[in-house]
Amino acid sequence: MAGLSLRNPVMTASGTFGYGLEFEDFVPMSKLGGIIVKGTTLLPREGNDYPRMAETASGMLNCVGLQNKGVNYFAEHIYPQLRDMDTNVIVNVSGSSPENYAECAAIIDGLDKIPAIELNISCPNVKDGGMAFGVTCEGAASVVKAVRRAYHKTLIVKLSPNVTNIADIARAVEAEGADCVSLINTLMGMSIDIEKRCPRLSIGTGGLSGPAIKPVAVRMVNQVAKAVRVPIIGLGGIMTTEDAIEFMMAGASAIEVGTANFIDPAVSGKIADGINHWLDAHSINDVNEIVGIINQ
């Protein structure tokens, strides 16, 4: 898919699986198509203040704010621990200007065991950049254009659902050379502590994830599948094998498991096995036969 060799369509979503190392007790990495590691920026970021999380009906809000030690720390200290991992290790890249997105991507371009990056133009929890780029066609195109010049391997662009028409954004990033799009990032939300009369999250708002957002995500995957030719990675509230199949039928060639990892740290491996069992049970030899089947 998009120049990537995937053992199966199951990946893990950025920010929900650490660097994979945190989950080695639970899932053999060789079971997964890939893992997408934490949002990485050119310079270190401390992230937002606590509290960063609020549980909601069938989901959760977070406002972590891209806490990470910066791309140079990643390249020097974390990459050596990941380079022999038996799966595709993909780095999620964020930034505050097209230039520093590109600079960060260029450093990762030099890491030979990282076959792809996922460009995060959709983080709702940072003031500078992040989602600001992902909510207009011009903004999204400007980042992808700059990164495309600096980055020569598979470029995945992660789209925000907090837009009027996600298909337009998908077309804009495809036109600038994105090899693949992943969607959806979290939906912006808010939760209020009525006794304290204040928001539950330190910055007021946060990104909603979990099964609460799945129907929105499936709809958007289907919308984008009809709008672009590049492959799609679907995510948003996938908890089970059946959820994953649903995304694939909507048009996703691969999927990412996110918040579900918090509840069952072994779930990504179970979904990878589950898809195979489902295909066998339905006498389907090639998983691609079901991709976008509802559009045919």
Partner: peptide
């Protein structure tokens, strides 16, 4: 006892300064 989601150091929700 900061509020947690994953408990495994992945989500970065329960941070303390």
């Amino acid at each position: 006892e900061n509020m947690m989601a994953c408990g495994l150091g992945a989500c970065l929700c329960c941070v303390e300064k």
